[in-house]
Structures are given as C-alpha cells and as structure tokens.
Design a protein around this nucleic acid. Structure first.
Length: 182
DNA sequence: CGTATTTGACCCGCGC
DNA sequence: GCGCGGGTCAAATACG
C-alpha cells in the first residue's frame, strides 16, 4: 500500500501505548476457506520500511481475515449486489498517537459519514477514496479512553498511484507511531 | 461554480 | 417483529 519508501520516522513520541488492542477488528472472518495469505502480506507491508518503530505485538490474534471482496459491489441500499457471497471484506487497523484525526496518507479521501460509537464519546468518521473506480474505504476513530490515540481502519486496496507527494507523508510519519500491523 | 463536508434518514444484520 | 448498532446515502451546506 502506501509507504513507498522507508522513511526516517524515528521520531517516537514520548509516550506510547502498550495496552492497545486492535484485534477487535478481526471480528468476522471465519467463513470461506478462501484465506489467501494475500492480505496478510498486505498487512505486513504496512509496517514495511518503517524502521525503528514499535510494533505492538500484544495482540496475539492478529489474524488476517482471509475473506476476499468483490470489488464492484456498489451496494446501495436500494438494490443489493448480485446476492452472491456475503463474505466480509478484510480490514486492517492500526492505531497511532496523534493530535489530529485526519492523518494524510497521500490519498484523497472524501468523508461520507460519521457515527457515534457506543461506549465512546468520540465519533467515528467514514472516508472513501475519491479516485475514480477506487473503492477503498477507511474509518477513523478515537479512543475514548485515551484521546491521544487514533485508530485507523483500512478496507480494500488502492489500485492507483498516490496523488500527493510522499514528502508530506514522511512528514506525518515523523509525527506518528504505528503500533500494530495486524 | 465545482468540490468536499455535514448530517439526518435510511438500510441491514442480528439478538431478543 | 422490533429495536439497536453499525454502515451508507444524499440533500443541504460550507468552502476554495
């Protein structure tokens, strides 16, 4: 995915989160033996190139939900998709410690929703990649427990190049810390 | 004026 | 069947 080059994101914040548990995003995955390790690789690539950042491996169950998705699923709630597989799309979450929720990863995102999360006084924001034909989604939410922590969940994979300069991305990398890869 | 965000309504799966 | 929680749409609005 992103992170085209290894950047010098050594700037670790003074505080870090050990008790983070992202694993809750792997809620549904069991079905479909489709499990191609494919997405696992994807995930691995998330923390690629980023040297010296602390990977939080406390969540022993960082499984890579193996279900695949059909990309052209324009499911508007008027007409369901072809009614094929009801498999879940894999999602990948990582949390960062940042003051701002909107971490610019180089892609253009259009916000399409915001919902309050239960047991969380902060809302969750839903974004979609604006690139034509790109259905990648992401959602961003903040932990109510520790408002300094932002959880970003990606869904899908970009099939087009990044639109913005990576310099900026390195810049944001220097401000955040990735704790979990999967 | 075109594009992005806001926001309530709507859809859906699930549990009771 | 209904209510709830999570996710999405789309009209209105804000913004450059």
């Amino acid at each position: 995915m992103f992170l085209p080059c290894s950047s010098s994101a050594a700037a670790a914040s003074s505080h870090m989160v050990n008790s983070s548990h992202i694993a809750s995003y792997t809620d549904h995955f069991r079905s479909d033996h489709k499990t191609n390790g494919y997405y696992g690789d994807l995930m691995t690539s998330t923390n690629m190139g980023v040297p010296s950042l602390q990977v939080n491996n406390n969540n022993s169950e960082g499984k890579s939900l193996g279900t695949q998705e059909n990309r052209d699923d324009q499911v508007k709630y008027g007409g369901k998709k072809k009614g094929e597989k009801k498999i879940r799309k894999p999602r990948y979450a990582f949390q960062t410690r940042s003051q701002v929720d909107i971490l610019d990863d180089g892609y253009r995102w259009r916000k399409y929703g915001q919902k309050a999360v239960k047991n969380n006084r902060f809302p969750r924001s839903y974004y979609r990649c604006t690139h034509q034909g790109c259905n990648v989604k992401k959602q961003v939410q903040r932990l109510s427990k520790d408002e300094g922590v932002v959880v970003t969940t990606y869904e899908g994979m970009h099939s087009h190049p990044i639109e913005k300069s990576t310099d900026n991305f390195e810049h944001i990398l220097s401000q955040m810390q990735i704790y979990t890869a999967y």
